[in-house]
Amino acid sequence: MKCFTYTQKLVVALLVMISLSACQSAPQSLYQRVGEQAGLERLVDAFINQIGQDDVVFHYFKQTNVSHFRTGFVSHLCDVLDGPCQYDGDSMVQIHTGMNINEHDFNHVVDLLIAAMDEVGIAHPVQNQILAKLAPMRSEIIKI
């Protein structure tokens, strides 16, 4: 069998690239990719469940009103992940001031969030993009 010529291979490669970029030309927001409002609620419920079962960081949440936290975090995520929401709750600095969260415990909460995302079946690349959106808030959360 005669192999494809170099030019033919190039054309195929170009077509593949174009079709891939066509897929990307109508990008879904992260909000849509996690399943919109219902998906966010599932995620936050799984996250609350993870925290509730955790010995390391549960004490930070002892005084927390769970339904207030749930509503606030869903709305915050909706805003940060480019959903149709405007988070108007307390700022990250206001919420975390006085908690003195250290590096270890912050990363432990990240681990719990990842576990929650695994639990509700959020795909690995989407998880990373969510973490990329949240990571810059670290300086407004730890050691204050």
Binding site: A123, H124, P125, V126, N128, Q129, L131, A132, A135
Partner: peptide
């Protein structure tokens, strides 16, 4: 480490 930098991969 760039989170999600390569089409969602770190």
């Amino acid at each position: 480490l760039h989170l999600g930098a390569l089409n969602g991969y770190n």
